[in-house]
Design a protein around this nucleic acid. Structure first.
Lengths: 209, 209, 209, 209
DNA sequence: GATGAATGAGTCTTCATTCAT
DNA sequence: GATGAATGAAGACTCATTCAT
C-alpha cells in the first residue's frame, strides 16, 4: 500500500511539474513571442535546470504540443459552457471572445491544423499519443461548435445549411477576425478593432433584409 | 549612347537577378516553410554564393520585404481587375480566390499587418522606403476592396453597413477561410475544402431568407 | 553541508575555467596580436567548443573586458607595493617596469581610457558592472600614482606642481616610453631600448642642473 | 615626343589618383576609425570602383602604408620648420603639436615602429620599396628631432645627455601625452587635456630648481 | 584601363540536446 | 532523480580580392 501510495504521489508530483513548465512556457509565449520560448528561458523561469525539462518532455516539440493541448482544452471548456445559450447572436459573440483569448495566447503563433499536418507528415520525434490527443481535442472543439449550431436558435442564421457544414464557416470567421485585428496591439494603425469588426460581421451575417 | 545602353543593361540584369533571388526564396518559403528560408539555402538554390545575396538585398529582412511587396502587388492587380464585375457573388468569390493565391504563396507565413507593425516599432535595419511602399500597397489593396464593395451590386449584401466598415469584414472572411482550409494540403484530415467553405460562407452571408 | 560544499566546488571550478579562458586569450593576444583573438581561436586553444566560451562570457567584449580587468588589477597591486619606497628615482623606475609588464600583456593592444570611452558611448552589450569595475580600478591605479607622487621624497622632482597634476605627466612618460620601445621585440631596428630610454628620461627629468 | 609626353601625363594622372585615394582613406580613418576603412568605403568615397583601387594599390596593406608615408612626410616637413627656432620651450611645444596632428590623423590607429616590424617579419605582400621609404622617412623625422635637440638653445634641457639619446626621450613624451589625452574627445571623463598635460610635463622637465 | 558582380572563408552568436557527476 | 557544463552545427552578415566584360 505504502509503496503504491508513494508511486502515486510521485506521479502526481510529476504531473504537477509538467503543468508548471507548460504554464511558464505559455507565459513566455504570450508575453515575449515564440522566439523567446527556448528551453533555457523556460527552465530559468520555472526554476529548474535545463536538463530537468527533458525529464518531463522528450522534446521542445513535445512541450509545444502540450501547450497547444492545454490551450485547446481551455477553449473546449469555454465552448462547452456556451452550448445552452438561447440568444444565437450572444452565443456566437461569446464564442468569438473565447477564441480571441485562445488566439492571443497561442493561435497567433501556432496554427493547430497546419501544425498537426506537419507533425503527422514529418518523421518528427513526437509522441504519437499526444498527437492523437491533439486531434481528438480539436475534433471535440469542432463538435461543440456543431452542437451550438444545432441549437434551434441558430436556425435562422444557417438558412438551411446543415450545422456540420456551418462549422468551418463559423470557425473561419472567428479566425479571420482575430487574425486581422489582433496581430498588432489595439488602437493599431490599421484601425481594425476586434469588437467592432466582429459586430459588423455579425450585422452582415444576421441582419434580416 | 553605347555607354548609356550598357548601363541600362547592367541595371536590367541586376533587377533580373533580384527577381530571381526573390523567386527562389518564395519557392523555398512555399515548399519548406519559413524556417527553411535562410541566406544559405536561398544562395544555394539560386546558384549564388552567400555574399552575393547581399549585393541585392541589404538584409534578410529586406529580401522578405521584397517578397511581400511582390505578392501584394500581384494581389493588388488581381483585385483591380475585379472592380468592374456586375455579379456581386462572383466578384467576391473571385477576390477570395485571388486571396487564396496570395495566402498560399506568402500570407500563410507572414501576416502583413503584424509584420508592418513589428518593423515600424523595432529599430530594424529595414529600408524605410520599402516599408512605406508596403504600407502604401496594403492601403491600395484595401482601397480596392472598398471600391468593389461600393459597387451598387453589393448593396443588398451590406445591409446598410458603410463600405469602409465592410472592408475588414470581407478581409476577415477571406483570411479566415484561407487560414482554415489551406494550411495543410488539399484533402487534408480536417476535411475542409477552400471552395466548399467559401461557398457555404457566401450562402450564409447572402442567401435571402 | 555537503550540498553547500558541492555548490562551492562548482563555483570555484567555474571561476577556474573563466581564468583559464582569459589566460588563453591573453596568450593569443600577446603572441599573435589582437586580430588573432577570435572566439574560435580562443576556444580551440582552451580545448573547448565555441559555445562553451559563451558559458563564461556573455560576449567577446566581456572576455576582453575581463582580460583588461585582470591586468589592471595586477598593475594596481604592483603600484601598491611601491608606495612606501624612499628613493624617488627607484620608485619611479620600478613603477615604469610594472607598467612595462602591463603594456606588453595588454596595454599595447588596448588603450584603457579610449576603450572605456567607447564602451560608455556605444550601446554595447557590455555588463555595466564590469565597466564600472574597470573605471574604479583605473581610478585606483591613478590614485596610487598620486600617493606615490605625494611621498615627500618626490618633492624635488615635482618642482612645485601638485601631485594630482603630475599624475598624467608620469603616466604619459610611462606610456610613451613603452609605446616607443616595446612595440617590436627587443633589439629592434629602431634601436630603442626600454631601460635605456627610461634612464635617459629620468636623467632629463631629475638631474639637478 | 608626343608619346613620351602622353606617357608622362598618364603617369602624373596615375600619381594624382593615388594621392586622391590616399586622402580619401585618411579622411575615413580620421573621422570614422580604422574599422571603417574598407576597400569599398574608400572606393565609394573616391568615386571609383572597387576594382580600380587595385590598379593603384596592390593591397589594402599598401594603401595603409601609403597613408602612413603621407602623414609621416607631413610630420617631417612640420619638424623641418621648427629647426631654426630659438626658444627651446616654444620649439618643443610646437613639435608636440605637430605630433598631435599626426597622432589624431593616424598615429592613434597605427604605431609606425610596430607596423614596420610586423611587415618586415611577416611574409606580407608588401612592396619592399615602400617599406624602405617608410623606414627612411621615419629616420628622417628622427634625424630632424636630433637637429632640433642639437640647437644650442636646447643645451640646458639636455643636462649633458647627447642629442641622439634625447631623441627617444622627446619622442616618448610626445607619444605618451598624445596617447593619454587624445584617445577620447576633449573634455573627456579622464579630465586629461593635451595642452595642460603638455605644459605640466614641460614644467617638470625644464623648470629650474 | 576601368568596372563592379561574385566569391567564400571568416566573424560573432544562439540553442536544442546530451551526459558525466 | 536532478543538474548544468559542454557541444557543434547553424544562423546572419562582412570584406579583401579576383576576373569576365
Amino acid at each position: 500500500m505504502t509503496i503504491k501510495r508513494f508511486m502515486e504521489l510521485r506521479k502526481a508530483q510529476k504531473e504537477n511539474r509538467r503543468q508548471t513548465i507548460v504554464e511558464v512556457a505559455e507565459e513566455i509565449l504570450t508575453t515575449k513571442g515564440i522566439d523567446a520560448v527556448t528551453i533555457r528561458s523556460v527552465a530559468k523561469a520555472a526554476g529548474l535546470s535545463v536538463g530537468s525539462i527533458y525529464m518531463y518532455f522528450k522534446n521542445k516539440e513535445e512541450l509545444f504540443l502540450c501547450m497547444l493541448l492545454g490551450h485547446l482544452e481551455k477553449l473546449d471548456k469555454a465552448f462547452a459552457s456556451r452550448i445552452q445559450g438561447e440568444d444565437a447572436l450572444q452565443v456566437l459573440k461569446a464564442m468569438a471572445n473565447d477564441y480571441k483569448d485562445y488566439y492571443l495566447a497561442c493561435g497567433r503563433h501556432i496554427n493547430v491544423i497546419g501544425y498537426l499536418y506537419e507533425q503527422r507528415n514529418q518523421a518528427g520525434e513526437i509522441n504519437p499519443t499526444l498527437l492523437n490527443d491533439l486531434e481528438t481535442l480539436l475534433a471535440s472543439v469542432l463538435a461543440k461548435t456543431q452542437v451550438v449550431l444545432e441549437n434551434p436558435a441558430m436556425a435562422p442564421i444557417l438558412k438551411g445549411l446543415e450545422a456540420s457544414r456551418a462549422i468551418p464557416v463559423m470557425w473561419s470567421i472567428m479566425t479571420g477576425v482575430a487574425e486581422l485585428t489582433l496581430t498588432s496591439p489595439r488602437g493599431n494603425q490599421s484601425g481594425f478593432d476586434f469588437d467592432r469588426v466582429l459586430d459588423d460581421t455579425m450585422h452582415i451575417l444576421f441582419k434580416k433584409d
